[in-house]
């Protein structure tokens, strides 16, 4: 497809970390069926470090590739480090995105943040009980 880098096609055709994590530490779901892209991102957190990340995505090539690469980028990072992973970093990691596909990278960033927030809110809830 026009505007898709070789790296993006590689992540689209052979996506890394597809699937769900059983009993994830955090789960984020963003997008909606109207726009056509839905991303689910699962993380496992141990000692404040993301030890595993997986995704499921309904969407175009860019949506699948961005969600896949973001799971790779955050593995081994602390939560604070992971929160700093921006959509720009995702775009750069894929070797660029066509202009009208940039929103996919924003979704990937939002899915990651949602998963981390889910984890943090569970932690806060746990502390209270």
């Amino acid at each position: 497809m026009e505007g898709y880098s070789n790296k993006l096609m590689e992540y689209f055709l052979h996506p890394r970390n597809v699937g769900e994590i059983e009993n994830p530490s955090g789960k984020g779901r963003v997008g909606n069926v109207v726009c056509g892209d839905i991303m689910e991102l699962y993380i496992k957190v141990e000692n404040n470090i993301i030890t595993d990340a997986k995704f499921k995505t309904l969407g175009c090539g860019a949506a699948i590739a961005t969600s896949s690469i973001v799971t790779e980028m955050v593995k081994g990072k602390t939560l604070d480090e992971a929160l700093k992973v921006s959509n720009k970093a995702v775009v750069e990691a894929l070797g660029g995105l066509p202009q009208h596909k940039l929103h996919c990278s924003v979704l990937a960033e939002q899915a990651l943040k949602a998963a981390i927030e889910d984890y943090q809110s569970k932690q806060a809830g746990g502390a209270r009980s």
Partner: peptide
């Protein structure tokens, strides 16, 4: 449950 562009590619 799938999206057209992914299918086409």
């Amino acid at each position: 449950y799938i999206e057209g562009e992914s299918l086409l590619l």
